[in-house]
Design a protein around this nucleic acid. Sequence first.
RNA 1: GAUCCCGUAGCUCAGCUGGCAGAGCAUCUGACUUUUAAUCAGAGGGUCCCAGGUUCGAGCCCUGGCGGGAUCACCA
Length: 521
Amino acid sequence: MSRIYTEQEQVRREARVRMEEEGVNPYAYSWDVSHHATDVLAAFDEEKHVADGEGEAPEKLTVSVAGRIMSRRIMGKAAFFHLQDESGKIQIYVSRDDLPEGFYNTVFKKLLDIGDIVGIEGFVFRTRVGEISIHTEKLQVLAKALRPFPVVKETGEQTWNEVTDKEFRYRQRYVDLVVHPEVRETFRQRARMITAMRGFLDGRGYVEVETPVLQPMYGGAAARPFTTHHNALDMKLYMRIADELYLKRLIVGGFDGVYEISKDFRNEGLSRFHNPEFTMMELYVAYKDYAWMMALVEELVEHLAIALHGTTELQVGENRISFQRPWRRLPLFDAIEEKTGEQLFGKTRDELSVIGKRLGLEVDDSMGAGKIIDEIFGEFVEPHLIQPTFITDYPVELSPLAKKHRSKEGLVERFEAICNGKEICNAFSELNDPDDQRQRFEEQVRLGKRGDEEAMQLDEDYLRALEYGMPPTAGLGVGVDRLAMLMTNADSIRDVILFPLLRPEADDTRDQSADDAPTQP
RNA sequence: GAUCCCGUAGCUCAGCUGGCAGAGCAUCUGACUUUUAAUCAGAGGGUCCCAGGUUCGAGCCCUGGCGGGAUCACCA
């Protein structure tokens, strides 16, 4: 595959060749790093490392760092540049006479560019203007960048030429991460959040497990699956849409608490809140019910906010959100009545249809009672729930895996936590009556036959497991990406997913011959 | 899938009523041993997203497509 190089690429490729001619390996094997950039700043001690003017020689703080050249200021026989590593930036000072004969003029000045990765060994000092810097005693090229980087310039207050093209940033996330330290920080926070979540769950003795991604039958959520094919077994497989049914089999098997943090896949549209593959945490705890689970969710999310930010109060977009326990608890029908003045409990499907239309919704004949209620909630209530709120007790027809309510006819023991106008989790007292579960599945199959593409399949093996007896169980599903959006103040799910799904680009990054590659039967 | 907005140099962006494609940074050449958006002097760099159309002439107008964003739909 060949590609026409831009002027700047040609210059960099020539530099790479000339480096090799000079005996400098443009792709070194290793470099011993003693400090990150921020460690250097922290380790520098004014008392010890700066001459005190009374003739006493300062102590030398020698460090070794590695990173990418982000800017260059060359002044004849000396130069400054900023080196960026994972922690941040540190200024490097280079002078001709401190490097091997000729290296400064031929290699440093002529063959190194912004974006190249180098190792620097030297001592730390403070420049005349006051910036803590490293005086280079040894410079090694570690990796030559053959493509030019976007050069972002900044002072304390202002930034120039920042990469703003979202497409560029999502497609070339590696570049986005280099030029936007805050993006690195977002993903570090995401990682910390998941670590804290895992710690919270492990600390309570729940067992982290792994269940199949490739499944002969999908279930556990209302969604359309991706399909794939296993060649050796010549079998259609689905990629999981939820972990639920497998995890509850494990509760049958005698685990008292299991959880899984994993990717789910749903064959749906893309939006600010939806990526076809996304991360879910599901937890099932035996002998507990949804009221107990509510308390756990509050505690978990409060714990995460403190672990990440040291406080329970976060700024998310326009809103100041407090995750401090306890959160408001509000039955679904009361929430709807509060916002619309309509009490929907006990209403027939046709009465709901009339109310829905009166409220201005489009209601068609295919929509059941539960669907109409869900629409009214989604339109008039959910967007207005900014502070974390538990919405409880859903209609049974919306929740085929939840246990019927102990006291309210037609409802199930289910809650969702809503925050900043979006759901962050879904939980219920799990249905463990196998005969009731079979009827619910059969209803789903009827819906499927009527054309509901998101209806669940009847999972005989799951029913078999329930028939052996599953203890009363509380179950929870948390949208990890949605939660990460809240915790990092991101307004698009793409900002908390490193490589969000995009349409393929027609460009130079794919080999032409790939189009001729054999496809799987 | 629908609607609206966007697509010009490596990056950020101008481009008038349709009249020779521009700037800053980056790159190249030269000067400069504590600079910091380094500075100074000079130079090169374009499939104006793609394909048609209108026109003497299209970056600009029209049609279709591709890609992205936002909103909606779908969906948690």
